[in-house]
Design a protein around this nucleic acid. Structure first.
Lengths: 174, 174
DNA sequence: CAGAGAAACTTCAAGCTTAAAGTTATTTTC
DNA sequence: GAAAATAACTTTAAGCTTGAAGTTTCTCTG
């Protein structure tokens, strides 16, 4: 009874891809796909978070925020950052506060509109970010390294299709 | 200067897939792939969270925990749940506490090992979960609905390869 | 140009999440 | 069979995240 042969792998986690399968309407294929997608991104994201913490004593949200700022020499408005990062405005407020405290970013009120906050990387912040970004690139390259270039291309393409499907679905029915 | 044509879509978010590209070591392809993967799963996950909240006044972690329990008539040990959900033990403790409070799950100490907590869905919890799971299946089917079956199959396959790559990478270098 | 409305945050309350440290209970070792 | 090691949680401190409500500052209408 209940004889499972579990494969606890290097993650220390059991293979979780057996979550919410077999639904009444038989959406098994889609659910399986979603679960696998989620598993992949969770595995990668967890690893990235771990390394950011261990190697840079930082976090993914901080890194993401700085990444947004990196290519914006003239700084960026909070609302723009919020949209690009796909997180709530209130969240950005908090992150910005901390990053400003630690000297990674600067914060100015727009001279033309006093509601608007403009943030930008400080030289220190930029230097720190570049170190992290470089390491981050290596980590990702390692994690994806077992995937043949051709598979990577196919995956990129299929994900584009998925994204279109998702955005379309979000757009209409709602 | 800085003339952007942004496509703010149905999500209200700007297309964020331009995050951490162009790294020194030129891991652009992998980074692009990672970003796209992350975008897809974030879009879907956010939508699922929103609907769980709006339609069931629940959350994704709660749903996931109940999903784990659903196929375990005899209940499940906390550590097992933790591994399957890929979250920390402390997290499970909190979730279990709340779900027990709300009557969705029961909690017993193992008679053979008093360190071990066994949790299981209550009839009420099971009924609630079934409603949610059914709706959840429909949401996912909608979101993935624009993907041709063949594309779904290809994607599933490629994600399997990616997962192998990730797990292998996590296993060795560390 | 005053009042209504919209924008751009900020604050708040609540929940999720983790790593690390702490408990309690069981197993292993000598 | 006691001490040491191991297991299975639980607690704690800290940070992330959100939706909703609140502020302040424009902008638009009449």
């Amino acid at each position: 009874m209940d004889e499972r042969k579990e494969t606890t792998n290097a993650t220390g986690w059991v293979d979780g891809e057996t979550k919410v399968l077999e639904a009444p309407g038989d959406h098994g294929a889609e659910l399986r796909l979603w679960l696998r997608l989620l598993t992949c991104s969770t595995l990668i994201e967890t690893e990235v978070r771990r390394r950011l913490r261990e190697e840079f004593d930082s976090t993914l949200p901080r890194f993401d925020l700085m990444a947004q700022l990196e290519r914006a020499r003239d700084g960026m408005v909070l609302g723009e950052v919020s949209k690009r990062m796909m997180v709530s405005p209130g969240n950005i407020t908090v992150l910005v506060e901390r990053l400003a405290e630690s000297g990674h970013i600067s914060r100015t009120t727009s001279p033309t509109d006093r509601r608007v906050q403009i943030i930008a990387l400080t030289p220190f912040g930029r230097a720190e970010f570049e170190k992290m970004a470089s390491a981050h690139g290596d980590w990702i390259a390692d994690l994806f390294g077992g995937l043949a270039p051709k598979d990577g291309a196919v995956l990129l393409d299929e994900l584009a299709k998925l994204k279109r499907s998702v955005v379309a679905s979000l757009g209409k029915g709602n």
